[in-house]
């Protein structure tokens, strides 16, 4: 058996409900349209992040990957399911243990403009949490911030500035520094490089890689960019409309994708070799999570759709050691 994963999600559900206001309820009582609308953002998602690995999470926008990241980071609660930290249910922890575990998982956000408080100086953005949590004393704080800034490739002389005085790439470095300041073990990067210029993107990716070796970090790398995931991730989880459809080691996944959605996703990714090829786009739009299709969520767009796919949701099951896929074709 493998060792206990560092961070794991067990059958996480997340439903966003739009509760009706008074006028809405009145309308329903008088016989108007249906009641509360529910978005099923995550539907029984399970995944495990092993210590020291980089787990990539890919999928189209709206597939729930950001929601998953936020739940794992403890920013929003799951509707049901458990989050395990080294095997222990995170919601049952209390006191200092709860805080330690919460700080152990930090997040780096997509938008470097809105993820930094515009009214705070860089030194305060980075230094606030470690100071409040007593991880450093006020006397040590200055040096501590300098060290972290140097680690992320910023000049400590700039720490008295405000976020708007930095470029996008530098802001993302500040965001990473803020996460690192509380000595996390796992970092969840939610589209952390999507908003950056391509040239800067490579720098930040390299920074992530460098920091991982230096600080012994584990990453959950959420991205829609397959090229980046292929480069940085050890394992990849593919999500579609709130469900995990496939998970596999990166090389295996890119060499031989199993799930039809993964196949289509990879076929849609531009590569240098096939410059002249016309890309086969996945047919149709991603369905509305307000009203997901019955059975396999992918069936309306799947080229191999069978009668069974429309009725029964395929279970995520092992197709090879370390490889999971949720498709009825594997049972056929």
């Amino acid at each position: 058996m493998e060792a206990t994963p560092l961070l794991a999600a067990e059958r996480i559900d997340k439903r966003f409900e739009r509760r009706l206001d008074f006028a809405g309820r009145l309308a329903v009582k008088l016989g108007a349209a249906p009641g509360n609308e529910t978005v099923h953002a995550l539907d029984g998602v399970s995944l495990a992040v092993r210590r020291g690995e980089v787990l990539g999470v890919v999928g189209e926008s709206g597939c729930g990957k950001s929601t998953l990241g936020r739940i794992l980071a403890g920013i929003m609660p799951a509707s049901s399911g458990r989050i395990l930290w080294q095997g222990a249910d995170r919601d049952r922890l209390t006191g200092t243990e709860r805080r330690t575990v919460k700080l152990a998982v930090q997040m780096v956000f997509q938008d470097p403009a809105s993820s930094l408080n515009p009214r705070m100086r860089v030194a305060d953005i980075i230094g606030e949490a470690p100071l409040v949590h007593g991880q450093v004393t006020r006397a040590e704080l200055g040096d501590y911030i300098d060290t972290i800034l140097r680690d992320v490739g910023l000049d400590p002389a700039m720490k008295q500035r405000y976020p708007h005085q930095f470029s996008g790439g530098q802001r993302q470095r500040i965001g990473i520094a803020r996460a690192l300041a509380v000595e996390p073990q796992c970092i969840i990067a939610d589209e952390a490089v999507a908003a950056l210029d391509v040239s800067i993107r490579a720098q930040i990716i390299n920074l992530f890689d460098e920091l991982r070796q230096k600080r012994d970090l584990t990453y959950l790398f959420i991205s829609h960019d397959l090229g980046i995931v292929r480069f940085i991730a050890d394992r990849v989880v593919v999500m579609y409309l709130g469900r995990v459809v496939e998970s596999a080691p990166t090389s295996a996944l890119f060499a031989a994708p199993n799930h039809p959605y993964t196949v289509a996703l990879l076929a849609g990714a531009p590569r240098l070799e096939d410059r002249k090829r016309a890309f086969a786009a996945i047919e149709g739009e991603i369905p509305s999570p307000l009203n997901p299709p019955r059975g396999c969520h992918f069936h309306p767009r799947c080229p191999h759709v069978m009668a069974r796919c429309r009725e029964e949701a395929p279970r995520l099951s092992e197709i090879a050691p370390g490889r999971l896929s949720a498709c009825h074709l594997n049972q056929a």
Binding site: R70, A73, G74, I75, R99, K102, L103, V105, Q106, M107, F109, Q110, D111, S114, S115, L116, N117, E128, A129, V132, H133, G175, R178, A179, V182
Partner: peptide, 17 residues
């Protein structure tokens, strides 16, 4: 709704802060 608030929540800062 801005991400810096999410970041603050993630850093376990108190609600009043």
């Amino acid at each position: 709704r801005k991400e810096y608030v999410d970041a603050a929540v993630c850093l376990d800062l108190s609600q009043s802060r």
